[in-house]
């Protein structure tokens, strides 16, 4: 196989996407369990849900970016 250490690093950095997936799942799952306990309060909190998901996902996107940089730019 061709490739170098940068490609291995890119693959390792991609693990971060999985971590972000765990984070996003955590946020959404906790929101859902809270929403099922008190459905009347859920509608007002969807904005907070999306903000939380966005923050959790941003870090996954950072990992993805590092991976891309290693693949293409370094």
């Amino acid at each position: 196989m061709e490739g170098d250490l940068a490609h291995i690093g890119a693959g390792l950095a991609a693990i971060g996407s999985g971590a972000a997936a765990i984070g996003v799942g955590n946020v959404a799952g906790n929101f859902l369990s809270g929403a099922l306990r008190n459905p009347s309060a859920a509608a007002g909190q969807t904005a907070t849900l999306f903000i939380g998901i966005a923050f959790a996902e941003a870090l996954g996107i950072f990992a993805f970016l590092v991976s891309l940089l290693l693949m293409f730019a370094v």
């Binding site: 966005a54 923050f55 996902e57 941003a58 996107i61 950072f62 993805f64 970016l65 891309l68």
Partner: peptide, 13 residues
């Protein structure tokens, strides 16, 4: 940084 990379990164990915 996160504000811009989130948008571009999601779409690019």
């Amino acid at each position: 940084v996160s504000h811009s990379i989130r948008l571009a990164g999601n779409l690019m990915a």
